[in-house]
Computed example of a mutant assay.
Amino acid sequence: MIRFGFIGFGKMGRIRAEALAKTERAEGVVVFEPNLDGECDFPLANSPEEIISNDNVDAICISVPNAFNFEYTIGALNAGKHVFCEKPPAFTSQQVREIRLAEKASGKKLMYGFNHRHHGAVMKMKELIDSNKYGKVLWMRGRYGKSVDESYFETWRANKELAGGGILFDQGIHMLDLFLHIGGTFDQVHAFVSSLYWKMEGMEDNVFAIMKNSKTGMAASLHSTMTQWRHLFSLEVFLESGYMVLNGLKTGSGTYGDEILTVAKNRSQAPAATWDDEERFLFETDSSWDSEAEHFISAICNDTPISIGTSHDALQVMELIEDIYENEHHESESLNTHLKPIQ
């Protein structure tokens, strides 16, 4: 049995604890949560450090505001604990590089909660793409949006010091991770980042980004928003010999609709596939949390590498996020320099 300490036991901490328990190879032994809501079956620690230094803890699950992910992950690895941490891994790519050094020195398992990779439809997409049945990926388009109201500003996610960023850090990071997972890396980025509606200082409510791999020509576009007045998830992947379109995402709240993957079996005569060529897959159960827990526990028990949600995955997505933020800043400077008002 792998003995777990939980730093953070709100909604996500409880979800992780339940999923880990289902593996029947993990047990919770201690929890730190300063704002505990509801009952807790585990003993309570007085501080995160008390859990990190606890000799009775083999692994630590970190589900806290973003600002603390770097500090607690580094501390836990240095203390010889396996670590599962929610996204984002840190505030900067340099911090992730420091985490990777600690991970290597510790010899322990480190996994990040890039949960969307574990959804049934995404796993099906990845399987089909890796089979090369449809050829290489030509382009991708991702839209991920939600609606928030004034109550959002009562949460830590609306606090720049705790969250680190706006909707790109909150939701967009998942879509960027799927782009990297499915299509590969990018070396060119153009982006527009704004806070036109909620007007949060240093916190974006919309991101439009276009990315390209200059070697392969593969491109992707992202719209990440919190002014989508209906929740929406859509991931489209177009390949040399077909396409895959995922609309909806099975979640506990049900707000993103049914998780439906549409696949073109093959191309008809040019110029396009027809509706009759399509096959549709409906994923009625969300087993992503259980899949993540099983992957993490199996890696610990069998001493096998983490293959989904690695620190390398975390580094790649953080570098891409930095490119988006930095590129937007440079484009703004360019616009201010070169555009003149119409007379």
Rank of each mutant, 00 (worst) to 15 (best):
M244C: 11
V245W: 09
E154H: 11
S214A: 02
A163L: 00
L239P: 02
S221V: 14
I260P: 03
M226L: 01
D258F: 15
K212E: 15
A219L: 00
Q188M: 14
E259R: 00
M218R: 15
A191I: 10
S253I: 06
Y197L: 13
G183K: 02
I173Y: 00
L196K: 12
M175H: 04
T255M: 06
Q188R: 15
Q171M: 07
N206H: 09
K212D: 09
H223S: 04
L178Y: 02
V237E: 05
F192C: 05
G183N: 01
G217D: 04
S151N: 14
T155C: 07
A209C: 08
G172I: 02
T216H: 03
D187V: 10
T216Y: 03
H190V: 12
Y152P: 01
K212L: 10
Q171D: 08
A163H: 00
F169Y: 13
S214R: 09
F169N: 14
D170A: 12
G252T: 11
N206Y: 07
G248L: 11
N159S: 02
N159K: 07
F208D: 04
L261D: 02
G202D: 01
K160N: 02
K212I: 10
N247E: 14
T155R: 15
D170C: 07
H190I: 11
G164M: 07
K160M: 04
G165D: 02
F179Y: 01
